[in-house]
Design a protein around this nucleic acid. Structure first.
Lengths: 229, 229
DNA sequence: AGGAACTTACTAACAACTAAGTTAATAATC
DNA sequence: GATTATTAACTTAGTTGTTAGTAAGTTCCT
């Protein structure tokens, strides 16, 4: 019944410039990516016009297209650039490992709260790319698989070291943790007066530790104060 | 005018038809809402054209506008209609109350898995309305507040009846539960081959019961199914 | 001189929406 | 019970504005 022949653009565009060739050009690109990130976060990819982005950095629309070839090219640049921040977070988690990583979740929440643009950008772009065939669908699939792998690895390390119960499924727990963090973020973005991101993550962090730790934790009151062993 | 004069349409449009006046009209409205739900779910509100919706039901674009007055009018109709399904879920939860409600979460997940369109629609529309000023922002704020209240009430009842520990914060737990469910849904929609919605919710349901129940649960050998495939 | 980084001027497609007329069914009147 | 009036439910045709993207030329810097 009415099969979808919804084929996207054939992506023929000659992708005019993949990399900058000049310090000036590189700087412009950075400006453009920053502006586009803000606008995509506010009005989405589909809801944002190239003209708006161009005005924001004080050039014309074709001037913008010179750098990225097409709107999709710009999207890709935005997504890849902003992903670095998240990857940094992933490294942090991976480096720490085990229960200590869970204890540091509130710090991550603080960073997010201070940069609502990044959180919103990813929430909006994720929703716009849920469908296979959406321009950045594969990117988000890959990204979530990687992050789940990182979190699952962190849990597995906690199990190896004996800090965490063995009968927890690291894969499933990883999905749950990422799900909760995303969900907190969207409720907070939607209604910051009612939902405090940091409080939510702090409480959830405690819940996770209570759930996963083999030994009961000493009662750490309030915010994330490190307890040196 | 680099400043944002991004004022939305003043909503003056004479909202030509708020309700149907004829069985035939009512039926057409239903068709249109169904088609628009599908399309909004796939390509979002901003990414979907009135022409596409109109074609889908076999009428012209002005014919569509006759019924809903404007694109926003159509969006509102879609959102309000599809919300009824979610409200039904809320009633279920509220009626059951306490731990039993947590045990029935997988049933809710089953319903969602069989209707991916609804889940996707809400994920997409939520992300498109995170900003105050977005056309349905207030609707989503209201909706989440209501659902948090329902879930928090369910927990409070569990506490009153003695099934659940008193030192859990019902408001925070409600945020967490909705966050996790939304997050499961979006990971599942993005990558259904790696994330099984039902398995995730089942596991999470057990985690919640373990976390909140005062008495340890008898081991209900529910699903020993394999993890995702 | 030559290329990077633009601009102006344009196009073709499409967006939501309107105006005005048409059809068909119902409801009211004679 | 046929005719008329009224209305819902459309259609055709057009308006206005915006979209991403192009073509071709210009400025600037090395």
């Amino acid at each position: 019944m009415t099969e979808n022949s919804d084929v996207r653009k054939p992506l023929v565009g000659r992708a005019r410039a993949a990399k900058a060739a000049t310090p000036k050009g590189a700087e412009r690109r950075r400006e453009i990516v920053a502006a586009a990130s803000e606008l995509f976060a506010r009005t989405g990819f589909r809801g944002t016009g190239m003209t708006e982005v161009a005005q924001r950095v004080g050039i014309t629309e074709p001037g913008l297209l010179y750098h990225f070839g097409s709107k999709q090219g710009l999207l890709r640049a935005v997504v890849e650039h902003r992903d670095l921040a998240s990857q940094a977070f992933a490294r942090d988690i991976a480096d720490v490992g085990g229960l200590q990583a869970l204890r540091e979740m509130p710090a991550f929440a603080h960073r997010n709260r201070d940069q609502p643009g990044l959180a919103k950008l990813f929430a909006v772009l994720l929703a716009e790319n849920l469908d296979p065939g959406d321009p950045e669908h594969d990117f988000f699939v890959r990204r979530y698989r990687e992050m789940r792998a990182v979190v699952a690895g962190m849990i597995r390390e906690g199990q190896r070291s004996g800090e965490m119960r063995m009968d927890a499924d690291p894969e499933l727990k990883a999905i749950e943790i990422l799900a909760a963090l995303d969900g907190f973020a969207s409720q907070w973005l939607l209604d910051p007066e009612m939902v405090d991101l940091v409080v939510c993550v702090e409480e959830y962090s405690r819940t996770l530790i209570r759930d996963l730790a083999t030994d009961p934790e000493p009662v750490t009151a309030g915010t994330s104060e490190e307890i040196q062993g």
